[in-house]
Amino acid sequence: MHELTDAEATTLGTWQVRVSRALHDVTGCVKTYVAQFAEVEGFAHVHFHVMPRMGNLSQELRGPRVFELLRRPAQQRVATDLVDDIARSLHARLTSSSELSE
């Protein structure tokens, strides 16, 4: 993160807000979690996890514990077709002319 130029940092901040707004609009989440890790060998780039936090998420899974959801059995995860629908809706929201002007 410390190596980003001011212009890159500005763009990053703008995109994180845009994605957060889109997730709220598409999923109805009450919060958006943004996490950045760069610890895995071979990943010298910066990447972020942007996650919608739904209102009914149990207290035990809030904050950084949200990653525990990745350990759930496949039958407890969001269905693939729903994930695809959400992704298409996010894409549409993020590429709409009204979002580009915000």
Rank of each mutant, 00 (worst) to 15 (best):
M1N: 04
M1E: 14
H2A: 15
H2R: 08
E3Q: 13
L4R: 08
T5A: 09
T5Y: 09
T5C: 07
D6I: 12
D6F: 09
A7Y: 02
A7K: 06
E8V: 14
A9S: 13
T10R: 07
L12Q: 12
G13E: 06
T14P: 01
T14M: 11
T14C: 09
Q16I: 09
Q16K: 10
V17M: 12
V19I: 13
S20G: 15
S20P: 09
S20F: 07
S20D: 04
R21M: 06
A22V: 12
L23Q: 08
L23W: 11
L23A: 04
H24D: 00
H24N: 00
D25M: 10
G28Y: 06
C29M: 14
V30W: 11
V30H: 09
T32D: 05
A35Y: 10
Q36F: 08
F37G: 01
A38Q: 07
E39T: 00
V40P: 00
V40Q: 00
E41Y: 01
E41R: 05
E41F: 01
G42A: 07
G42F: 02
G42W: 02
A44S: 10
H45M: 10
V46Y: 02
F48K: 02
H49Q: 05
H49G: 01
H49P: 06
V50G: 01
V50E: 02
M51G: 09
M51E: 09
P52T: 00
P52Y: 07
R53C: 07
M54K: 06
M54C: 07
M54T: 01
M54L: 09
G55N: 11
G55V: 11
L57W: 10
E60L: 08
L61E: 01
L61R: 02
R62E: 05
R62D: 01
R65G: 13
R65D: 13
R65A: 15
V66K: 03
F67S: 11
F67A: 14
E68A: 15
L69Q: 15
L70W: 15
L70F: 14
R71V: 15
R72K: 11
R72Y: 09
R72E: 14
P73Y: 04
A74H: 06
Q76H: 08
R77A: 13
A79I: 06
A79W: 03
T80A: 14
T80D: 14
D81I: 04
D81H: 08
L82Y: 05
V83K: 06
V83D: 07
D84Y: 01
D85M: 10
D85N: 03
D85Y: 04
D85L: 13
I86P: 00
A87Y: 07
R88E: 13
R88A: 14
L90H: 03
H91K: 09
A92C: 07
A92T: 03
A92M: 06
R93E: 09
L94Y: 00
T95G: 12
S96H: 01
S97E: 12
S97Q: 08
E99L: 05
S101M: 03
E102K: 06
E102L: 06
